[in-house]
Design a protein around this nucleic acid. Structure first.
Lengths: 198, 198
DNA sequence: TTGATGAGAACGAATGCTCGTTCTAGTATA
DNA sequence: TATACTAGAACGAGCATTCGTTCTCATCAA
């Protein structure tokens, strides 16, 4: 529509986004409870008043960060679903993306994987029952139906296929792994696939 | 006001232990930052003053809980090492113990695995570079040297063998898995071993 | 036995500070 | 003008920690 409206909404979402970005960085780096709203104001260069104009409370910021990341993740997984047809290719592409993301946006990864959200987002479901994880399990379940992976408990198949990768990411984020994750992709994938291949 | 009229007077280590037990329960159930020292006092039936007599500060309690659990874990792993000689048997025994522990002492498991200690124990190393995890990796490394598992990066082998089990435990603690973990042991183990067997 | 002594342990009200939130005043945009 | 947004000072509830006091008990002298 008119240019003016778009300008306003851009500034508006811009402020929101700055707060979310600062929140993500600070929450990840120091933890939710070691981050004050004033820290976020300073880091985002948005005033306290503006923050409370956009978010109900501190928890609202965390919730905003969390859903932003989850939605992004869901998009990525849907793309993968669209782009590949076999279970093997889908899961492998997913693992590759996870490794890449962990290197490019370690803070986002850490926030999604490592943070124990229930401690400060009591109403959210735990990460591993969140949508992205459920979609991951759906990949596997479908694969089992099609006979592309062995007929075992779907949950077991899912953690066996991706568990190694996720532990690897966590280890990397904790500084226990030295080389970049994509360098390990082939080996980790081979192990995961062996675990569930028919 | 007569208090502590019990026949057997409380011993020093008894008080300490009560605080640690209460701390473990509350930290796990509500999180470190949602637990006040007064909550711990109430739960442990130890006065605030007594708590501060035994621990330097709140963080000291958390550190106490953490090291208590790690030490217990190290003992368990050493026992396993003594009792079994092959890599296969050792790792399988370890997985069985982890599943059993997760059912019997979910709070202890959760504290060790799930809590992001660095948020409130800034000086501690992250869990996955702690002694128990290192010992787990040593099992695997030794297995690779002996040719009992494939010649792949030891870190990759380790996360591939145990990653599924650990994810399974986390899922179980989060309420995503319905049946008791030991029921899944055979399947999870088979998957893990397939991933790294020569 | 009785009583005195001291040290470690336990007590909990009081303190003081931190930090999430509110409020009033101000500026830009439509 | 009205609406949307921003600013940052001020507030006050909540919480970790302190500290002066009390309790318990082993030891030993008388």
């Amino acid at each position: 529509m008119s240019r003016n409206v778009s300008v306003v909404s851009r500034t508006r979402t811009d402020t929101r986004e700055r707060v979310l970005t600062a929140g993500l960085r600070l929450f990840t780096r120091h933890g939710y409870f070691n981050t004050t709203t004033h820290d976020i104001a300073r880091e985002s260069r948005v005033s306290i008043g503006a923050i409370y104009h956009h978010f109900r409370d501190k928890e609202g910021i965390a919730r905003g960060v969390y859903t932003m990341l989850l939605e992004r993740m869901v998009d990525i997984i849907q793309d993968i679903h669209r782009l590949h047809s076999s279970t093997h290719d889908r899961c492998r592409a997913l693992m590759a993306v996870l490794f890449k993301l962990a290197e490019e946006e370690p803070e986002a990864m850490e926030f999604m994987l490592h943070a124990k959200h229930r401690e400060f987002l009591p109403t959210e479901t735990p990460v591993c029952s969140s949508k992205p994880f459920a979609m991951m399990r759906d990949f596997v379940r479908e694969g089992a139906q099609r006979g592309e992976i062995r007929a075992i408990d779907p949950m077991v198949a899912s953690v066996s296929l991706f568990g190694g990768a996720i532990r690897m990411i966590i280890a990397r984020l904790d500084g226990v792994v030295e080389r970049a994750l994509p360098e390990y992709l082939d080996e980790v994938w081979a192990c995961g696939w062996r675990a569930v291949a028919p």
